[in-house]
C-alpha cells in the first residue's frame, strides 16, 4: 500500500511541476516547416517581450486536420489560399483588426482582397509564388515553354513530378486548356488520362526532395514552386525556371488568426511584426518565396528583382486555387486512381 501512496505522490508532484512555468505573455504560431528566417522569432521576443511557441506543419491538410480535430489553440496560422477559403467557410478563422496591423499598408494593393478572402478580413499575405518548370540547361535540347515538355518522350526518366494532388492535377488541367479549379467530370477525367499517360516518363514523384534531386542533376525537368526554384538556382547555376505559356497556379500563404485563439492581441502584434519591411525582407530572402511588400523587396537588392520570384504576373494566365469544399472527394478518387496505376 505504501508503494501506491508513493506513486500517487509522484504523480501529484509531476502535475504541479507541469502547472508552473513561464508566466510571460505567449503566442502559439503554426507555420510551414523551414518557412521563417532564423532569428526573426528571437527578435520579436526581444522587442515585445511576448514568448513565441513555434510549431511547424508540412501540408495545409496536416494543419487543417490538427486545427479541426484537436483543442490545441494556436494564435497565428500561415495556410495557403484555398485552405483559408475553406477555413473561413467553416468559421475556423477570426477577423483580424487591421487597425492593429500598422504595417498593413506596406503590403502592395495587388495582393489584397484576393479571391479567397475578398474583403481581406481574415488574412494578411506573407508570401506568394507561382508553379512552373525547373529545368537543367545542360540536359534539355531547347528551353521548355509549354507544360508539354513534361509529356515529351525524349525526357523519359528525366522528369520529376510533384507528389501533391492539387498541383499535379492543376497544371495538367492548365496544359489541356481548362481552369485549374474545374469540377467538370469530363475535364477532370481528361486530366487523369493525361497523368496516367505521363506515368512511364516520370522518374520520381516527390515534394521536398525535388530540391536535392534537381541540384544534383538527377533529372532534366521538374514541376516546382518558384520559391524552391530560387533556392535551387542559387545552388546550381545550370538550372532555370519557366512559367509555361498555358498559364499556371499562383498561390498565397497568408497569416491568419484561428477563431479559438487565446491571445488575439499578441497574434496581431506578431502579424504586424512580420509585415515590417526589414523583417519581411529577411524572411523572403531566407526562404526564397516572394514577398508581397514592395518596401521589403527594395531592401533585398538584386534578390528583390529576381524574375523567378517576381515575374510579371500580368503576362501569364495565373489562377488562384479555390476551395473545393465537399467536392474534394472527386479529386481524391481521381488521385488515388493515378497513384495506384503507377508502377503497376
Amino acid at each position: 500500500m505504501k508503494k501506491l501512496i508513493a506513486l500517487i505522490l509522484c504523480a501529484a508532484m509531476l502535475l504541479s511541476l507541469a502547472a508552473c512555468g513561464d508566466d510571460r505573455e505567449t503566442i502559439k504560431v503554426y507555420n510551414w516547416g523551414d518557412y521563417i528566417a532564423p532569428g526573426v522569432i528571437d527578435k520579436f521576443e526581444e522587442e515585445t517581450g511576448i514568448r513565441v511557441i513555434y510549431e511547424m506543419f508540412e501540408t495545409n491538410e496536416d494543419m487543417y486536420t490538427k486545427i479541426k480535430n484537436s483543442n490545441n489553440a494556436y494564435d497565428v496560422l500561415i495556410p495557403s489560399d484555398y485552405m483559408i477559403e475553406r477555413m473561413i467557410a467553416e468559421n475556423l478563422l477570426a477577423e483580424i483588426d487591421m487597425a492593429n496591423i500598422t504595417n498593413y499598408d506596406k503590403i502592395d494593393a495587388e495582393y489584397k482582397n484576393l479571391s479567397f478572402d475578398p474583403e481581406n478580413k481574415y488574412s494578411v499575405p506573407y508570401t506568394w509564388g507561382t508553379v512552373g518548370i525547373l529545368y537543367n540547361k545542360t540536359m534539355v535540347n531547347e528551353a521548355p515553354t509549354s507544360w508539354g515538355a513534361l509529356w515529351d518522350g525524349q525526357y523519359k526518366d528525366n522528369i520529376i513530378m510533384m507528389n501533391s494532388q492539387r498541383d499535379a492535377i492543376g497544371i495538367t488541367l492548365k496544359y489541356l486548356g481548362y481552369s485549374l479549379n474545374t469540377l467538370e467530370a469530363a475535364e477532370l477525367n481528361a486530366a487523369k488520362e493525361k497523368l496516367i499517360e505521363q506515368e512511364p516518363l516520370v522518374l520520381a514523384w516527390v515534394v521536398d526532395e525535388v530540391k536535392d534531386k534537381m541540384i544534383g542533376g538527377e533529372a532534366a525537368l521538374a514541376l516546382v514552386y518558384a520559391g524552391d526554384a530560387v533556392y535551387c538556382k542559387g545552388e546550381n547555376p545550370d538550372l532555370e525556371y519557366v512559367i509555361p505559356s498555358e498559364g499556371s497556379n499562383i498561390f498565397f500563404d497568408s497569416m491568419c488568426i484561428p477563431a479559438n485563439c487565446e491571445n488575439k492581441a499578441g497574434a496581431e502584434k506578431f502579424i504586424d511584426f512580420m509585415c515590417r519591411p526589414d523583417i519581411a525582407a529577411e524572411n523572403a530572402g531566407y526562404i526564397g518565396y516572394s514577398s508581397p511588400s514592395k518596401a521589403a523587396r527594395e531592401l533585398m537588392g538584386e534578390a528583390g528583382e529576381d524574375p523567378t520570384a517576381y515575374p510579371d504576373i500580368t503576362k501569364y494566365d495565373l489562377e488562384i486555387f479555390s476551395s473545393l469544399g465537399d467536392k474534394t472527394k472527386i479529386y481524391d478518387e481521381l488521385w488515388t486512381e493515378i497513384i495506384t496505376v503507377r508502377g503497376m
Partner: peptide, 22 residues
C-alpha cells in the same frame, strides 16, 4: 525507395488521414 512510383496500402491509408481527411 519507390520515388512515389510504388503505391502500397500504407500510402493509401496515410493519405486518408493526412490529405483527404477521410
Amino acid at each position: 525507395m519507390g520515388s512515389g512510383n510504388v503505391t502500397l496500402i500504407g500510402d493509401i491509408i496515410e493519405k486518408q488521414y493526412r490529405v483527404v481527411n477521410d
